Computed example of a mutant assay.
Amino acid sequence: MTTILTRASFRLQFFLGFLACAGLLAYAIYLQLHDGLEPCNLCIFQRVAFAALGLVFLLGALHGPKRPGGRRAYGAVALIASLAGISVAGRHVWVQMQPPGMTSCGAPLSFMRETMGTWDVVRKVMTATGNCGDVDWTFLGLSMPAWSLVWFVLLAIWAGYAAFRRR
């Protein structure tokens, strides 16, 4: 017996991936604007990764390639975006697991962009030198970066399943 998800088209599966990314970004923005949770630099990079992944999902859903090679190409790009998000979220979780005061994120991202080159900004943010170690929000015992990590892994699996399964 087949389920709806196994019978769902590539377009529908990628559109659902897009909706998940859009929902996660919308919730992060809601928490920022409504509850006053200011994102750190690693949070910003996680949002960029969710936006990139969502864009890949949306483009794949709109295009809806018929050939397996086209679906696999979208799947590969989605997996790359997911892996970027996994690496940033994983780093953020690691930073939060360190003793208080041992790590931070550094200067605001806008200041770093004005004073450094792109790769220097990326390197600086990934070394976690500001408030990335603070845990301001939890759900079921997991911090927001931990939930981001969970979602990046789930969306990577979803993209891989949608793109590489036999039809």
Rank of each mutant, 00 (worst) to 15 (best):
T2G: 02
T3D: 12
T3N: 08
T3W: 08
R7K: 08
A8Q: 03
Q13K: 12
F15T: 04
G17T: 09
G17E: 03
A22V: 14
L24G: 09
L25R: 07
A26C: 09
Y27G: 05
Y27R: 13
Y27T: 07
A28P: 02
A28Q: 14
A28I: 04
I29D: 08
Y30N: 08
L31F: 08
L31Q: 11
Q32W: 06
H34M: 13
H34A: 15
L37F: 14
L37C: 00
L37G: 01
P39W: 10
C40H: 11
C43G: 07
C43L: 10
Q46I: 11
R47F: 10
V48F: 10
V48Q: 01
V48Y: 11
A51R: 05
L55R: 01
L55D: 00
V56P: 02
L58T: 03
G60I: 02
G60L: 04
R67I: 10
R67E: 14
G69Q: 12
G69S: 14
G70S: 09
G70H: 09
A73C: 10
A73L: 15
A73V: 13
G75I: 05
V77T: 13
A78G: 14
L83E: 07
S87W: 02
V88M: 03
V88W: 03
A89Y: 00
A89K: 01
A89Q: 01
R91L: 14
H92R: 03
V95D: 04
Q96L: 07
M97I: 00
Q98N: 03
Q98I: 06
T103N: 10
C105T: 13
C105G: 15
G106F: 07
P108F: 05
E114S: 14
G117N: 02
V121R: 07
K124S: 14
K124V: 08
M126L: 15
T127Y: 08
N131P: 12
C132K: 03
C132D: 13
G133M: 11
D134V: 15
W137Q: 10
T138S: 08
S143Q: 08
M144N: 09
W147M: 09
S148L: 01
S148I: 06
S148F: 13
V150G: 00
W151L: 11
V153S: 05
V153G: 09
L155V: 10
A156V: 06
Y161K: 05
A162P: 00
A162E: 11
A162K: 07
R165P: 06
R165S: 04
